[in-house]
Design a binder for these strands. Structure first.
Length: 528
DNA sequence: AAAAAAC
């Protein structure tokens, strides 16, 4: 391991690092920081859990030094795929930049624009943003990206999954070509390779080998049940959660609607659980996550919004209510536990209809998790009330749908599952009535068309560094700021409901009074 | 198959 002091960071930055208690850099930090400090582009291939955030935050802070920010002209831009991840970067920034005069702002959706705009007007050095809000603010003329000296793309492959690549491309083109770019992705599918070829200059490729597929701090289990019925699955989940000594745990579901149902079910049965997914109000998401981090909430029921990247140290259990369809997601999900040397347990409920997904997972993790059996539950006789969110045309009409089955005592006795002794008495197993919260949301496909052109590998200009990644990670500050929670209305600037998109004059930059040079009101686009 | 992300 390399010490931070050997990486060429300034005294101020080193002091901030030392204050966090860390002395040794992770492999990706040791490799990336000197390259970034030298002003070179970095192509980092690394998963979360490798200390990636600090690997770009520290050199960013160092290189921006004490230069000063101008109104609406940020000098650095960090893009992350989800709001929570962006927030996490902001936390890291707050921690490491505290000895400097650098200012920064978190630009994410779901929260008031007012504070963000005010910060931009005052002038900030660093923007930490999700693509949607950044472009929104740009289109409103609140930001100029022509002063961007450094740009960081975090979790690029996830951006691809989420259909953000056109946005990212557009943002790249709004920044000056001479910027320094630090680009991170866990995998390098063709579309991502194309992006790096187009926008990175002679990057140094730094690869942290996949963190061990199954960190040996995580014990994995498979819980097979003979029924795919949602109610049967919930019963199994409760039996599982009830018998484990769960300090704090995350339950992952594949669908947002299921997240709501499962959270409600757990709550009804006396568990301290709350849902988190992308359809929930951002203030709620923020609060729920904060509660979970602080220990005020024991069980987080989550969609994959929480699967990747979120650094919640010390999660004791992960429960996969659904088998993830993407094997990668399974690895990310269970990676929320067993972190920083702590021990973790991961359970996966598997039904007969999960065969395909399970195969993919098992192939990827290259091991066979221990099989557990939940004894004493007659899963076959548990039937959920019909779900009504299946209204995709061929759904049955209200009248000919089967009626809810009268409550019956499905659960005989809760036998301990195989290896360990029962810890807590299983909660009462009567199903409460659960109404599936219905959500209809128009969904547009954002998948960009795959560019067929296969691109050659990136030129590695420095010897390729293949390093062994381990699980040491710079921890997020335990105390979160509540800056997301501002509920006040964003001051409506101009009362145009929808500015007709014609001759695109940007809103006036500050500092010119009424006399604004025309060129400043025109959008500026750099073509690479 | 679904998740996420702008008003």
């Amino acid at each position: 391991m390399t010490e931070f002091t050997k990486l060429g960071l300034s005294a101020t930055t080193l002091k901030a690092v030392a204050d966090t208690g860390y002395t040794e850099a992770t492999p990706i930090q040791a490799a990336a920081i000197p390259v970034a400090l030298a002003g070179r582009d970095v192509l980092g291939i690394a998963q979360t859990g490798t200390g990636k955030t600090a690997a770009f935050t520290l050199p960013l802070i160092d290189r921006l030094g004490t230069g000063r920010a101008r109104a609406r002209m940020p000098r650095a831009l960090v893009l992350a795929p989800t709001r929570e991840l962006a927030d996490q970067v902001a936390e890291s920034f707050a921690k490491y930049a505290k000895g400097t005069k650098l200012s920064w702002v978190l630009l994410i959706g779901g929260v008031s624009m007012g504070d963000q705009v005010a910060m931009l007007n005052k002038g900030v050095d660093v923007l930490i943003a999700t693509p949607g809000r950044l472009l929104d603010l740009f289109e409103r003329g609140k930001i100029l990206l022509t002063g961007v000296e450094m740009m960081v793309i975090d979790e690029a492959d996830r951006m691809l999954d989420m259909g953000f690549i056109p946005d990212i491309e557009r943002i790249f083109k709004l920044t000056p070509p001479k910027r320094q770019t630090l680009f991170f992705s866990a995998t390098m599918p063709p579309e991502i390779t194309r992006l790096t070829t187009q926008f990175l200059k002679d990057p140094t490729r730094i690869e942290a080998s996949r963190p061990a597929m199954t960190a040996d701090t995580i014990t994995q289990y498979i819980v097979r049940i003979p029924s795919s019925d949602p109610k049967a699955k919930r019963t199994a989940l409760r039996a599982l959660v009830g018998r484990e000594d769960v300090k704090n745990g995350i339950v992952f579901c594949n669908r947002k609607s299921e997240v709501d149902i499962v959270a409600k079910s757990l709550k009804t049965h006396g568990f301290d659980a709350a849902p988190i997914h992308g359809d929930l109000d951002q203030s709620l998401r923020t609060k729920t996550l904060a509660d979970f981090r602080s220990g005020a909430l024991k069980i987080l029921v989550a969609s994959d919004v929480a699967a990747r990247g979120l650094d919640i140290p010390d999660v004791s259990h992960v429960f996969n209510y659904d088998v993830s369809h993407h094997a990668d997601d399974y690895v990310h999900r269970i990676g929320r536990t067993g972190r920083a040397g702590k021990l973790g347990q991961a359970f996966m409920i598997v039904t007969p209809s999960d065969d395909k997904s399970l195969d993919k997972v098992l192939k990827l993790i290259k091991m066979d998790p221990q099989e557990l059996t939940l004894e004493g539950i007659d899963f076959a006789s548990i039937k959920d009330r019909p779900r009504t969110d299946d209204a995709k045309g061929r759904g049955r009409s209200r009248s000919d749908r089967p009626r809810p089955i009268p409550k019956s005592d499905n659960v005989a006795s809760m036998e301990p599952i195989t290896p360990s002794a029962p810890k807590a008495p299983a909660p009462k197993a009567e199903e409460a009535r659960e109404e599936a919260p219905r959500r209809s949301r128009s969904r547009r496909s954002t998948k960009p068309e795959a560019a067929p052109e296969p691109i050659d590998a990136i030129v590695a200009t420095t010897p390729e560094v293949a390093v062994e990644a381990d699980v040491v990670e710079v921890k997020a500050a335990p105390q979160r700021r509540d800056r997301n929670r501002g509920r006040e209305q964003a001051p409506r600037e101009g009362k145009k409901p929808e500015p007709a998109k014609e001759p695109r004059l940007q809103a006036a930059p500050g500092g010119f009074g009424d006399d604004i040079p025309a060129f400043l009101r025109r959008p500026i686009v750099f073509q690479d």
